[in-house]
């Protein structure tokens, strides 16, 4: 009697638990998914030419206005690297480089250059991998986005991003980052930073379009990505990356 009751209980328990879990997590994709979304492709790429950048900061200013980025946080920024003859490396980015750059009053500079940074919209983004609630994701077009209505603001994605591209927005209290101006791109515009760049150091386009200058560059130029050892496969490519850039 006792054993049969327990067996029954055990079975009932497993059925409810198992059934519930199955219905919720396994069946959910089938019942609730929008199958029409189709497969994800990485439509776009971004190319930064460090040889062209003049460090004027117009990109950062435009990004802030376009995306209402709160003060002291950055969806994009410009770093300046200065390598001295004695091997010393100096990196600075005052105000994210948004207010332009001032000359350096020191001699013996071997080389110096600007490196604009932004979210890399990786093919294998570990920020998305670590989101516990499905609040950050890769859109159909391959753009890494944050759902500010679902994000709990735990900050795990910020810790996971090797590039420092994410932050907690002090107004919305959720993770915030560059969206490649998703709202502009889908309207056929370029991201705001690309639009205002006066020297063409920032370019944005379609990967597989042979008529697109960016598509052509990615095919033909010898470009690098930041921290390739992370295995994130960035979709922001750099021309003229120095070994000192991380």
């Amino acid at each position: 009697m006792v054993t049969s009751r327990r067996d029954f209980l055990k079975q009932a328990g497993w059925t409810v638990l198992g059934g519930g879990l199955m219905a919720s997590f396994v069946e959910l994709p089938a019942s609730k998914a929008h199958a029409s979304s189709g497969d994800r492709t990485h439509l776009y790429a971004y190319v930064v030419d460090t040889h062209k950048c003049i460090g004027c900061g117009k990109c950062g200013e435009a990004c802030r206005a376009e995306n209402k980025v709160p003060d002291e946080f950055y969806r994009t920024w410009i770093e300046r690297y200065t390598i001295y003859a004695d091997g010393h490396v100096d990196v600075d980015s005052p105000h994210g480089g948004e207010k332009g750059a001032t000359p350096i009053k020191k001699a013996h500079i071997d080389r110096s250059f600007f490196v604009p940074k932004l979210c890399n919209h990786c093919k294998e983004p570990n920020c998305v991998q670590v989101c516990p609630v499905g609040a950050t994701y890769v859109s159909r077009q391959g753009v890494v986005l944050v759902d500010e209505k679902h994000c709990v603001g735990c900050g795990y994605c910020i810790q996971a991003c090797p590039y420092g591209a994410r932050f907690i927005n002090p107004k919305t209290h959720v993770a915030d980052k560059c969206t490649w101006c998703y709202h502009r791109v889908l309207k056929g515009l370029k991201p705001a930073c690309v639009t205002v760049c006066p020297v063409g150091a920032r370019q944005f386009g379609k990967v597989n379009d042979p008529n697109d200058p960016v598509g052509k560059l990615i095919k033909e130029a010898r470009l690098q990505v930041l921290k390739p050892e992370m295995g994130n496969q960035p979709m922001v490519f750099y021309n003229g990356l120095d070994k000192e850039v991380r």
Partner: peptide, 24 residues
Amino acid sequence: GVQGDYKYGYHRGASDAEQAALPA
């Protein structure tokens, strides 16, 4: 739900359109 794959596509589907609708 899952849109594409579970690893990178598990999210609230309506979020895409909401973000695309922001003014330029």
